[in-house]
Each structure stands twice: as structure tokens, then as C-alpha cells.
Nucleic acid binder design. Structure first.
Lengths: 204, 204
DNA sequence: GTCTATAACGGGATAGAC
DNA sequence: GTCTATCCCGTTATAGAC
């Protein structure tokens, strides 16, 4: 059980991630986190100074270090079809490991929340949208339909991410176990690229 | 200004909806709500007994009375194409009036939250999926491709709802004002049915 | 119905011993 | 680094005057 050998700091961070992802900043308490990490409140503050600082660290790691690298697959140098399949596959696998991540990130950005927004703007300053360029070039060559890039991008992201955001609702409505839900999103690894590519290739 | 003539109870409910939708249950405080309704905490509790009771009332109204009726358009007796266009159009208009609604509903269902889940199960007990039957019939007739209904439904919902859940992120990333964002989702009223229908009609 | 005042509680943070 | 005890504040909820 390697988990028991983790440093206290790591145990607290793991616990904090679990609690924050489940409850969000507002509903999570430092007591929850301390208890879940099998220590006490004083140590949480000893290592991280405050609940807010701890939250920021979790948020940054979850978003910048976990989510963004996968999102950047769209900027890889790959043929269109392979790229879309790879993106959907990798993103789905990431979200299966961390299904609460999208809800966590997005729910903390409600109401023009200043703190998180700052974080994000600095993160994505670099972005360069190789994907947009690729779609335009393929359209110019007549290989695919001419489309509004933003619409395609939004639909792609939506189709991959949204099922995880509404996971509990889907599981309830369709009466699925977690395994069945994961089978469902695994099937989407094929269904989503199929829909997008069928649409793109149908030159209207 | 009809708003000033509202009964105190209505003013409190309106304020509560605004605050809860912005911050979620955990981060919203009764003080916020009272202040926003231009009264005091005592009156909030006088009319609604507790913060939690007030929340439940808002949640039920938002979901059952606002969201579900539009979702049920998929069970209307309409030709496939007209139905999809109507659904996307009505849902988009609903969400433009209440852009925080999906985030609100879904974020309160994290972590297998028992309270909200009960509410939802009783609500949707009736559902009968005329839409699924319709897709199967059209496929049998050879008018559209044979598909997995759950995948199509998930993609449709995702494409309509997800942009509102990630509204702040989109606005920031693409540097959009609220008006520009609304123009973006208005364009989706055409883009989404187009993608779905192109896919369905392409008999693989 | 509406307000002021306050009780009762819970949460974040810290002091200080070890 | 770790723990116990405690402070202090914000929050919910209510009692009681008007």
C-alpha cells in the first residue's frame, strides 16, 4: 500500500482534490479535508496556509497539468481523421480517470469569478490553433466542407466532455452502473468522430 | 417598474434564484439573498423556513417547470427534421434567458447527492421516449441511418447545453461579449441540426 | 408582516506545547 | 512536523417588539 507511505503534504493534497472535486470550493470544508487525509486542520494550514491557497493549487494542477495537455492534441501535427480519433480517445480516457474534473473546473468559473479567470487567461496565452488552420486548409483543398471553426470545435468539446458533466443524471435516467456508463463513453470514442467526420466530408 | 410591486415573498424568491444560480448552494449565503431582495434574513426564514427549503423550491421550479417542458419537445408528434430544429431553437432561447440554469442543476448533483437525485427520479418517472421510437422507425423505413439512440441523444443535448455551461470559458477564450456569445449560440440553432441530420441521412 | 437583536453553531485560522 | 485547544468571525435561525 504505497498510499500509506505518502508524505503528509501529499496525503492532504490528495484528500483536498477528492473533496473539492466532489463538493466544490463553497461546500467543501477544511475539516472534511483534514479528516479525509487522516490528519488535523492545523496541518492543512501548516502546509498550505489557507483553504483558498490549497484550492488554487488543486485547480491549477487539475486544469493546467492534467486537462490542457490533452486539449492540446488538437494542435498536434497529425492528419485530420487520426487527430480527431486521438483527441476523443485520450480525452475520454483522461475523464474516465477523473470524471468530476470538468464540473469542478467549470463550476468554479460561474458568475464572472475573477480568481479562476485570471489563472486561465495566463495559461492559454500561448495557444495557436493549428487545428483551425488545418480545417481551413482541408476545406480549401476541397477535402472537407467549409465550416465555421468555432462551431465545430464547440460541438467536438461538448460531445466529449458533456456526458461526464451530466454523468449522474445519465446514470440515473438510464439506470447505469459506473461500469456501464464507462462502456457508454467508450462507445462514444467511435460515435463522436464518426458524426463529425461524416458531417465534414459531406460537402453541402 | 412592476418589479417593485412584487410581494416580499416573490422578491425573495427572485433574489434567491439569482444568488443560487450564480454561486451554488454552498457558496450562497442567506445574507446575500436577503440583501439582494432588499429585506433582511429574518424575512427569508419567515417565508421559507430555512436556506435548504428555499433552495429546494428554486431547484424544483427551475428544473421541473422550466427545463423539462422544453426537453419534452423531443416527445412531440412532429416530423424528425422539424422536431430537431424546434428543440434546438426552444432550448437555446430558454438558456439565453437563463444561461446559468444547466450549471446550477448539474453542479448540485455531484457526488451522488441524494437530495436532488430523489427529486429527479420522481419527476421523470413518466417519460416515454417517443423520440427513440421515431428514430428507430425512420431507420427501419431506410430514411436515416441505423444508430444507437442514446449516443445521438447525448450528442444532441451536449451540443445545445454545453456551450452555456462553459459560457465564461468560451467568452474568455474567444474574447466575446455577452451579445457576441448569444450570436454564437444563435448560429448553433442551424449548425447543430445540420450536423445531426447530415449524419443521420448519410446511410453508411 | 416586518424589523432588531441575539442565540447557537460551524468554519477557518492560529498559538503554543511537544 | 505534529497535535490540542482556542479564538474569532460569518452564518443560520429564532425570539420578541412593533
Amino acid at each position: 500500500m504505497a498510499k500509506l507511505d505518502l508524505s503528509t503534504e501529499e496525503k492532504i493534497k490528495d484528500a483536498a482534490k477528492k473533496i473539492f472535486l466532489e463538493k466544490g470550493f463553497g461546500s467543501a470544508t477544511t475539516r472534511d479535508i483534514a479528516e479525509c487525509a487522516e490528519t488535523n486542520i492545523a496541518l492543512v494550514n501548516y502546509y498550505f496556509r489557507s483553504k483558498e491557497k490549497l484550492f488554487h493549487e488543486i485547480f491549477r494542477e487539475s486544469f493546467a497539468e492534467t486537462f490542457m495537455p490533452v486539449a492540446r492534441i488538437l494542435n498536434d501535427n497529425l492528419p485530420l481523421e487520426a487527430k480527431i480519433y486521438k483527441f476523443v480517445d485520450h480525452m475520454t480516457e483522461l475523464l474516465k480517470r477523473d470524471p468530476l474534473l470538468p464540473m469542478f473546473v467549470l463550476s468554479e468559473m460561474r458568475g464572472e469569478n475573477s480568481k479562476m479567470c485570471e489563472l486561465l487567461t495566463e495559461m492559454q496565452a500561448e495557444e495557436q490553433n493549428q487545428f483551425q488552420q488545418q480545417l481551413e486548409e482541408e476545406a480549401a483543398k476541397g477535402n472537407i466542407r467549409k465550416t465555421d471553426f468555432n462551431q465545430v470545435e464547440a460541438s467536438l468539446m461538448a460531445m466529449v466532455i458533456f456526458p461526464f458533466i451530466s454523468m449522474n443524471m445519465i446514470k440515473m435516467k438510464k439506470n447505469l452502473t459506473t461500469e456501464e456508463f464507462y462502456r457508454f463513453v467508450d462507445e462514444r470514442k467511435k460515435a463522436i468522430p464518426e458524426m463529425i467526420l461524416t458531417f465534414l466530408r459531406d460537402r453541402a
